[in-house]
Design a protein around this nucleic acid. Sequence first.
DNA 1: TCACTGATCGTCT
DNA 2: GACGATCAGTGAG
Length: 206
Amino acid sequence: MATRALKSARLRRLRRAELSSDTLLLARQLIGHYVVHDHPQGRLVGRIVETEAYPPGDPACHAYIGPTARNASLFLRHGHAYVYFIYGTWFMLNVSSERAGQGAGVLLRALEPVAGLELMRRLRGVETPTELTRGPGRLAQALAIDRAQDGVDLCRPGPLWLAAGPGPTGEIGVSVRIGLTRAVEQPWRFYERGNPHVSGPLRLRR
DNA sequence: TCACTGATCGTCT
DNA sequence: GACGATCAGTGAG
């Protein structure tokens, strides 16, 4: 069982030097690595299976308008969390993705639940494994991510961090990004093909 | 499985 | 005052 194997194995924190500081490369590279939240009630771990890149100069990127109070974390050097609130209900977790002062990020769109599933079920209020972390709003809720994690350095000791994973198990698919009204044609979404935890319509999961 | 709709509130204009 | 990197529920094919 994946959960048991992970508990016996020791997770290794990803060093910043291992992470690309090119947004598109990082979005692809993050597939297969782990997000870990050491929550007071237990460790929550998910394996990244879907990302979207929001590179410098992208009109859909929140940093496009320049630095503001909300998007400040996107301008931190790569490897920091950018968490924002949207639609009055949901938080989204991103990883800053370029050098300091250059606003860009990678949105984590879906995870495969790996450890802490019982706590994830309580946080989400659902039972089905594929409904726990499929979609950016859901994964943030399942990992108890909120504004408190905005600006956190994911490469330093702390409750929220990135751990080295096994990498992609299958082929990485590429598609347009989901839910946008600007720059809709850019193929900047990356996902593990055929993985049932990937979000979006079927044609964007195959 | 897909398309459509309402909910909901922080952020920026 | 408008809008949004979403989700759950509903109804149709």
